[in-house]
Simulated assay, not measured.
Amino acid sequence: MVIRKMEPADIDAVSTLCMAAFNASVAPTLPAQGIETFAKVAAAEAFLQRLQGDNLMLVYEDAGSLRGILELKEGRHLAMLFIDPEHQRQGIGQALVTAMTAHARVDPITVRASLTSVGAYLRYGFQCSGEPGEFAGLTYQPMELQVTRPGQARP
């Protein structure tokens, strides 16, 4: 197992993994507009464009296959966290979140969690930070993760 920065060669596999995880758990809860919005965000071209920006993209690789993806925008907002549906509940999400915190530039890190993923984010240490919302057909729960604990210095 290795967690590393995403490379351009990973883009197609990452896009496929995100769509598989989204279709398995999130898509059934959304209207067609939300599914269409997410498909654009998870398209290979969109990932490639964001890879050129101020986004940290980490992949979890095991036995030569990608099992998870995490995207941290501007060191402050968790934009994507998806685990291969066949490998969920094996600690991959927690490992990616832990790796991400070393790259945080602000405290707390925020996320707009899909409603189906709130339980997972709570297990990762996030807390709800507002009322559920909706944007372009995607429903979400605002959440945040305190990177530093009282008495600790920022990473």
Rank of each mutant, 00 (worst) to 15 (best):
R123I: 05
G91M: 04
I83G: 08
K73V: 10
T139G: 04
T139H: 15
R105D: 09
M19E: 11
S65T: 11
P31N: 14
L56R: 05
R112W: 12
L72T: 03
A102N: 01
G53Y: 03
Q127N: 02
S114A: 15
A21V: 07
E71M: 11
P31R: 13
E36A: 14
T101R: 02
A44F: 03
Q90W: 06
H77F: 11
M6V: 07
M143N: 09
L48D: 10
S25T: 14
R67K: 13
P31Y: 05
C128T: 15
L78M: 12
L115Y: 11
G137A: 11
Q33Y: 02
M6L: 13
A20D: 10
A104G: 06
S25L: 11
Q52A: 14
L145P: 11
L30W: 09
V2A: 15
I69G: 01
K73H: 13
H77D: 07
G64T: 08
A120D: 11
R149Q: 13
V118M: 08
V106P: 00
P142A: 03
T16M: 07
A99W: 02
V14T: 10
A153R: 08
G130S: 07
A136K: 14
Q141A: 09
I35A: 01
R89G: 09
R105S: 10
K40F: 03
Q141D: 09
A32Q: 13
D107V: 04
V59W: 06
L138R: 13
L48Y: 02
L70I: 10
M1G: 15
P28I: 00
P28H: 02
V147G: 03
A39C: 13
C128R: 15
G93L: 00
Q90M: 07
L96E: 05
E36R: 11
D10K: 06
F22H: 15
V106S: 12
A9S: 14
E45Y: 03
A120C: 04
L58G: 13
E134R: 05
P132F: 01
L138V: 15
Q152D: 09
M100L: 00
F135T: 12
A153M: 01
H103D: 01
V59N: 12
I92C: 04
